[in-house]
Design a protein around this nucleic acid. Sequence first.
DNA 1: GTCTATATCTAGATAGAC
DNA 2: GTCTATCTAGATATAGAC
Lengths: 199, 199
Amino acid sequence: MSADRGYHHGDLREALIETSFALLAEGGLQRFSVAAVARRLGVSTAAPYRHFPDRIHLLGAVSAAAAHDLGAAITTAADAAGADPADRLAAAAGAYVRYVVGTGAGFHVIYAAELNGLPDGARRDQTRALMTVLLDLAAATGCASYQEAVQLVEATIAVAHGYTSLFADGFFARKSSSVDAIAARATTAARALTTRSQQ
Amino acid sequence: MSADRGYHHGDLREALIETSFALLAEGGLQRFSVAAVARRLGVSTAAPYRHFPDRIHLLGAVSAAAAHDLGAAITTAADAAGADPADRLAAAAGAYVRYVVGTGAGFHVIYAAELNGLPDGARRDQTRALMTVLLDLAAATGCASYQEAVQLVEATIAVAHGYTSLFADGFFARKSSSVDAIAARATTAARALTTRSQQ
DNA sequence: GTCTATATCTAGATAGAC
DNA sequence: GTCTATCTAGATATAGAC
């Protein structure tokens, strides 16, 4: 989902997906529009409809690509974090922040309710793989049950998504606003989720 | 911001604010529109403009009311949580989830970037008061500095906002989807943020 | 203070020319 | 495969009647 593409007039389909990421990163789903993507690429507003039947299918393709790339980013970050399972899961939160601030495509896009009816096999495979990556990281920390692993994943993503979303809304003070600073805080907060309670 | 209002034809201004909350709770900022609020109240789409010069000023009034009510909800929850400062701050996360799921008006609305230019004194006072409530709760846990308290507030809100926002996007499985269940998990996760690390 | 009517804008989506 | 042109729909906002 990130490899060898010719540029539009060559591969408009791939260019539409890439430019969708750029638009999402700048203005969120709020300001995303098929027309804006087309304008950004210098093609007519009708052109995208040769490649995607409607807006939802374009977002579905973005969702699939994001699930794939985010899963890869998380795996890479976990491996870089070393052997401790709790550190590896916490690193996933930091990777989430960095990926989503850069692309605008977090879980609110990947798992958007409006995509639920889409019979998109590629997307289904990528989202399942992403969830498997997360559940494996959570299970490795010593969860007693599948249910517990699910809830640990939810908590980790909630922390990461919360930081990302407040950051995107411009909530954090200027001086604390570097992506890396926010990612580091998300990692620290996520790490606390697996620390055995000991007051 | 929640007391004695006659109904529209009596107090349309107040009714517009209340109905804005209902719309935000149902569809988020995404689907909020002045026209939809008017329709819901059975008045013409022009009527709101007799009370607010434009959409932004209506959202500003919503922001002020939300900051006030959320601050009150957090104070109440903290007091109900008892004397332990860490429990009191964690309770704020649970109160945030319950309030924002019910009203749709979280920090992304209260501190929305599009409201930054608004010279709205009431809103400024309410948002400052809300932040003071949170900083006091954080400081009481034994923060070494103002900066540390700010970051603890940020982490607590990030957790709460993350849960809320994933919940609103329909991410959680059906069976785990009661507001109270999500609020409880947010409280637990927030509580972990102040637990002294001890592996 | 509210209504009807309207002007303007933007988005989604389609038809038909090239 | 892309363009021009166009239709529809919904939103913001204003003007003027009542």
